[in-house]
């Protein structure tokens, strides 16, 4: 993705966006609603033409791939199926265009847990079943790259966990997995790497761990001898705040150093916990300036 820009009318939906997604990881593609996630994916899949810049898969334009489903599997909008067709027929229509055999259709239906309803019309499917059908379609060509747009929408908790395990397993096989979401809490559990955008621009390209570290908020310490420990830590240069429940919020020292100081003075410590802002908060802080449809505060 290099300097990708896509305008609809005047305002850019995606604005000089550059990032790279690497194999072997689940990359979370995060941004508030209207940030340009779906637009980016649509451009990447050749469904929308970029105003400028390029979006390449394995170094090539998607439209130049002869049998693209073997290289890239995509789930865009799970509800976008013709309801009159059975699940098997729906997948066969897609598979046939890419020279994928019927046995593979049965295999992916099995994989996503829809084998029992393969002969049912998709019109009667729940949103969760359609998500699974969409993922089955993405997996048809056994592709090395998977692009999943909001795959957990409409899934029950069991389905959410299934997506999490499936995507992690696919990445562990060395595939490139990009999952878009507007929910940090979900990506926190699924993704290793994060691409965060807002108003079509890149806000951060990072890992879950880095993001957590960046928003580190000191260490929480509990002890029976609050004043003594507070004095000792302040003497060592820390900022100490006594919280309502008697715990100490310590800034400027890490957990190891705090433990050593307490031991030196013989003060028993009940708990030493490095605290970070939740990733949810970190994400909100990052995207606060770029909310397209945010509530006024």
């Amino acid at each position: 993705m290099t300097e990708l820009t896509k305008r609809y009318g005047g305002a850019p939906a995606v604005d000089r966006l550059s990032f790279q997604v690497r194999p072997g990881h689940v990359t979370g593609f995060l941004g508030p609603n209207g940030a340009g996630k779906s637009t980016t994916m649509r451009v990447l899949l050749g469904l929308a033409a970029p105003t400028s810049g390029t979006a390449l898969v394995n170094g090539r334009r998607y439209a130049d791939l002869r049998f693209p489903m073997h290289e890239v599997g995509a789930l865009l909008d799970a509800s976008a199926v013709y309801g009159g067709r059975t699940a098997v027929d729906h997948l066969r229509c897609l598979a046939r265009a890419n020279r994928i055999g019927t046995s593979r259709v049965a295999a992916v239906l099995e994989q996503v847990g829809l084998a029992g309803v393969g002969r049912k019309r998709t019109g009667g499917f729940s949103l969760g079943m359609r998500q699974r059908l969409g993922i089955a379609a993405a997996l048809l060509g056994d592709p090395g790259v998977l692009l999943l747009d909001e795959p957990v929408n409409g899934l029950d908790p069991e389905g959410v966990r299934w997506i999490r395990e499936l995507t992690r397993a696919l990445a562990a096989e060395g595939r490139t997995v990009l999952i878009s979401s507007h929910l940090m809490s979900e990506m926190e559990l699924t993704a290793d790497r994060l691409v965060i955008i807002g108003r079509g621009r890149l806000i951060a390209e990072t890992t879950v761990r880095e993001l957590a570290a960046r928003f580190q908020r000191g260490v929480l310490v509990r002890t029976g001898r609050v004043p003594e420990l507070a004095r000792a830590l302040e003497a060592a240069g820390a900022s100490v705040l006594v919280e309502a429940d008697g715990a100490l919020a310590v800034g400027g020292l890490d957990a190891v150093r705090i433990g050593e100081l307490a031991a030196r003075d013989g003060i028993p410590v009940h708990e030493v916990t490095p605290r970070s802002a939740s990733l949810e908060e970190a994400y909100l802080a990052l995207t606060a300036g770029s909310l397209e449809y945010g509530a006024a505060r």
Binding site: L45, G46, A63, P68, M69, L76, A80, V81, G83, A97
Partner: peptide
């Protein structure tokens, strides 16, 4: 139905 997206992802030409 939106099926056109799946169609043109399978056959980008």
């Amino acid at each position: 139905t939106g099926m056109i997206r799946a169609t043109l992802t399978a056959v980008p030409r």
